[in-house]
Amino acid sequence: MTSQNFNYIFQLSIENYHKHDHVDTPIQNPYPADSLEHLLYLKNWIDTVQWHLEDIIRDPQIDAQDALQIKRRIDRSNQERTDVVEYIDSWFLQKFKEVVPETEASINTESPAWAIDRLSILALKIYHMEIEANRPDATEVHKKACQQKLEILLAQREDLSIAIDQLLEDIARGIKYMKVYRQMKMYNDESLNPVLYQQKSK
């Protein structure tokens, strides 16, 4: 699989979400549960729902209790996002397990899955910026500014796609190697978040 496949899956997920455009829409993942495609679709669906939750919570008229519930939902979403990224990296670790890195092989600044995570977010930025660039009720100034931003985002996606393909090729050839650091998030851990463990000790 290449970045072209990743981008296609992300676009499919975004388009499927916007058929109903509601944060409580159940996911209908079209890919087999044990496949990389399934993980990629799930990853982008989580990102897409969270994108819209972030929009909702910024409503200045939102009820405080509703905002708190959404904030907690966003926290859970961030945890799910991290989990899925690590599942994707585990898939790549399995794929490349027989590759023997060269003596001078180097490590990348981020794992393949975290680079793909950025590609998923870019797909969302592009989708929504394109809407803004063509919004009928927007001013020409607004649409022109958004079109300029859209062109930058498209160039960024092209560059990142090339970089991801090159990284995966380099790992396959043993020029680079993967090293995954499992999540070190502290705020959800009752033994690491002082607000949580101090509550338990009272």
Score class of each variant (00 low, 15 high):
N7I: 03
I121Q: 12
T25K: 06
A67G: 14
D75Q: 13
S120N: 00
D117L: 11
Q147W: 07
T109I: 12
K95R: 15
T103A: 09
N134M: 07
Q69N: 15
D21Y: 08
R118N: 09
K43G: 00
D89I: 05
I152G: 05
F6E: 02
M129W: 10
T139W: 03
N5K: 13
A67L: 07
K125Q: 12
V195P: 00
Y127R: 01
E190R: 06
A145M: 12
K95F: 13
K43E: 06
R58C: 13
S120F: 01
A155P: 06
L39C: 11
Y197V: 01
M1K: 14
T25E: 04
H22Y: 08
A145T: 06
Y17N: 01
M178Q: 13
L42W: 09
C146A: 15
N108H: 14
T82E: 04
A145D: 12
T103I: 13
I116R: 00
N16E: 03
H18T: 03
F6Q: 03
E80C: 02
Y127C: 08
I14R: 02
I46A: 02
Q166L: 15
K19S: 03
N78P: 03
M178T: 00
L12E: 04
E15Q: 15
T103G: 15
I131P: 02
L53P: 05
S3Y: 08
L150E: 07
D59E: 11
N188S: 12
P26I: 07
Y41Q: 08
H52I: 06
L150S: 03
D24A: 06
R118C: 07
E15N: 14
D24G: 08
D21I: 04
D75M: 10
W51V: 06
H128S: 07
D34E: 14
A155S: 15
M129S: 11
I116E: 04
Y41C: 04
Y181M: 09
I162T: 14
K125F: 13
E15T: 14
P26S: 09
V100D: 05
N134L: 09
L150V: 07
I14H: 00
Q4S: 15
R81W: 08
S90N: 11
W114M: 11
V85L: 07
A115V: 12
L167K: 07
T25F: 05
N16Q: 11
K125W: 08
Q198V: 05
Q4G: 07
D189E: 09
M1Q: 10
N134P: 04
Q199Y: 04
Y41E: 05
K143M: 12
V180Q: 09
L160F: 01
I162V: 14
